[in-house]
Design a protein around this nucleic acid. Sequence first.
RNA 1: GGAGGGCUCGCAUAGUGGCCUAGUGCGGCGGUCUUGAAAACCGCUAUGGCUGGUGACAGUCAUCGUGGGUUCGAAUCCCACGCCCUCCGCCA
Length: 422
Amino acid sequence: MIDLRVLRDEPDLVRDSLAARGMPPALADELLAADAARRAAVTSADRLRSEQKTASKEIGAASKEERPAMLAAAQELAAQVKALEEEERIADAAVRTAHLAVPNLVADGVPPGGEDDSLVLETVGELPSYDFEPRDHVAIGTGLRAIDMERGAKVSGARFYFLTGVGAELEFALANLAMAQARDSGFTPMIAPSLVRPEAMEGTGFLGAHADEVYRLAADDLYLVGTSEVALAAYHADEILDLAAGPIRYAGWSSCFRREAGSYGKDTRGLVRVHWFDKVEMFSFCTPDQTAAEHRRLLGWEKQFLAALELPYQVVDIAAGDLGSSAVRKYDCEAWFPSQSAYRELTSTSNCTTFQARRLNIRYRDEGGRPQVAATLNGTLCAIARTIACLLEVHQQADGSVRVPPALRPYLGGREILEPVG
RNA sequence: GGAGGGCUCGCAUAGUGGCCUAGUGCGGCGGUCUUGAAAACCGCUAUGGCUGGUGACAGUCAUCGUGGGUUCGAAUCCCACGCCCUCCGCCA
């Protein structure tokens, strides 16, 4: 949720931001009107409630003879209060609806427009060249007996897989490498729940425009998270954090579930787009003035991890129209997939400023000791399935074996090469 | 799944319809005293909304797990839900 004070003081900021995302600026005016209506409703209800309190107290102090007449008047007052409170409720609900419809304010410098307007900031690493026809990760992984897509489909359906043998080992190796890097960078390692209550899902903004991406367990009113960002953000809900010593950083491992509604026919093969995968996610709580610097740090840690895996990639400044509703800015790291001759998203880091924290009621104390809304940021350290896919493709060799980058070897029993099986 | 107990201010507790503007203790902050400190004593001690003010602030409303209800009036009575604890059963 955006700060309503900003909207009241500088509505053009909000209108411009909506326009940059390709959304109707009128959403700002609808919220503005709902806000004004709510404030009017609150003021009149407060005034009458105050009157009622006074009247009630007088009844308490009155003698038996005085009471009947006073009660009649008080009953009338109570009915009026009830009516005004109903108006207040309706006005509250209207603000809430309008509030949820307005995404976070796009940061200065974010390219306006849609997907095609995203800007490549830099390209890192040399594209590999092969003196053979590079295979895709499904072919390589099948040869290594590392990936079993067929049985994944048999057991769970399309977009499911088994990691077997060295594939399963790769999952743990990547998770351990990611967690080790995160720990060395000052993150607290976390294992986070994959099932969360509606407030957590809503608070992080995942029940908005993309609600149909989310698995819901109706019998229990719980949601399967699409990223541990949800649980990590909600971890400190309703708390006042001590941010005096700098940002609080967590690296969370969890399974992630995505319905991939509307992506029929897209990336149907392999591990690139699946309904379930495991992920190590970075998450930061900090003060709002620190977010731009923290965002660059998160990007830096993502780049460090990709460098350790020796994967060529490009960094993309995502255009306004392609940002999630919570983000003011998003950088994606897209790694090279030789089988597709294309860069594909491997990691993504978003600066959500106070948008999620306001909703989740996460605050800190400023120098004056006053509570202020905190800021949140998140970034992928390793989306494991897709990273395995990329790793196998980039480091494949002519005989179907795969070279293990040195950083990963300690986590794979020292192996330098993964060999095809029989 | 079954049975019971609980949820009150940072922590601990009191509070079974109006004197609750939620008391007391602890902790914390400030002060008096003291060469300094401790002790003692005095004062303060939450969060959010709204209104007013340039402002430190003032007024007002809300908040006793959450949401409804009864009542002129609810921490207190009723209903539903959430969470925690204990025991039984089942279980990785």
